[in-house]
């Protein structure tokens, strides 16, 4: 037994060492740095206590970024999960060309987020975009889309969902494939229709898949960065100024690594609380 443990430890050690060096250590370093500040007058780093955290919770632009990130997540996560599950159910339907549909639904997944954003930027260009041309055909005047503070976040939700649906649907398809067919057959003999089977067989059997997708989707959307970086620059009027994008700007554009560290610690804590709540609500009940 001891020998077996030793072998396991030896095999795990390299991976664990890399995780500690490149992932765990930076987290602690970030927490440590968040309590300091760089003095441009003294040209040295000085202890700042919780000043960076006070700034995070009093600076209106940071608070706006937190608000935007939360609003975005409250909308985009249910939308992505609901639609990707629906897509997975459609792709499970046995019809001719199922493989073809399963392949094309992967196209957005295969395209990098940067390229996807660039393509959507061209599509939504207020001056020469295809979307406005289509709207003009049905008599709707040109829209500003990403340049409109009332529309920008909605369009980021649309393009993020377009990009994410196929990916999350993959997990649901795998989960659906795992549901034992005899359960459906038994339910069918008892007279259950499609919707009853979905409610009483599919959903309970998919609980673990849902738990994984909900938590992973929340994480990926909380740290969303690319659309703001590539398309909107956080605007208009801060409408898409996601916290992750502000952290990036604070660190690398405004040269305030310590404040950025405090912001990322706050993001980590927020995320920890939210996914902790999700994990609790979706826990296995005996």
């Amino acid at each position: 037994m001891r020998r077996k443990n030793l072998v396991v430890t030896v095999f795990l050690l390299p991976a664990m060492a890399l995780i500690i060096i490149f992932k765990i250590y930076p987290i602690f370093l970030g927490v440590y740095e968040s309590f300091f500040t760089y003095s441009f007058v003294g040209k040295n780093t000085v202890f700042a206590g919780i000043q960076n955290y006070i700034t995070v919770f009093t600076d209106s632009t940071v608070l706006n970024s937190i608000k935007v990130t939360l609003i975005f997540n409250v909308i985009v996560n249910p939308v992505q999960i609901f639609l990707s599950f629906g897509l997975a159910l459609l792709l499970m339907v046995k019809l001719r060309g199922r493989k073809f549909f399963r392949t094309i639904h992967m196209i957005p997944v295969a395209v990098s987020f940067t390229i996807a954003c660039t393509l959507w930027g061209v599509l939504l260009s207020p001056e020469q975009g295809l979307m406005n041309s289509l709207l003009n055909v049905i008599g709707i005047p040109n829209q500003s889309f990403l340049n409109d503070k009332d529309q920008a976040l909605a369009w980021v939700i649309v393009l993020s969902s377009w990009k994410g649906l196929g990916y999350w649907a993959l997990f649901f398809i795998t989960g659906l494939e795992e549901v034992p067919q005899q359960l459906y057959e038994a339910a069918s003999l008892d007279g259950a229709n499609y919707w009853k089977s979905l409610r009483w067989i599919t959903l309970p059997q998919m609980k673990r898949t849902f738990k994984f997708v909900i938590i992973s989707d929340t994480i990926s959307n909380f740290i969303l960065f690319v659309p703001a970086y590539v398309l909107t620059g956080g605007g208009p009027n801060g409408a898409t100024d996601f916290l992750m994008y502000r952290i990036y700007r604070t660190a690398y554009q405004y040269s305030d690594m310590n404040l950025a560290s405090a912001m990322i610690v706050v993001l980590l804590i927020m995320l920890g609380i939210i996914i902790g709540a999700e994990a609790f609500l979706l826990r296995d009940k005996e």
């Binding site: 995780i19 970030g30 994480i219 990036y248 980590l268 996914i275 902790g276 994990a279």
Partner: peptide, 13 residues
């Protein structure tokens, strides 16, 4: 889960 989250955020940064 918390550890995983932290890792993902740091990786993205």
């Amino acid at each position: 889960v918390l550890l995983l989250t932290m890792c993902m955020v740091v990786m993205t940064a």
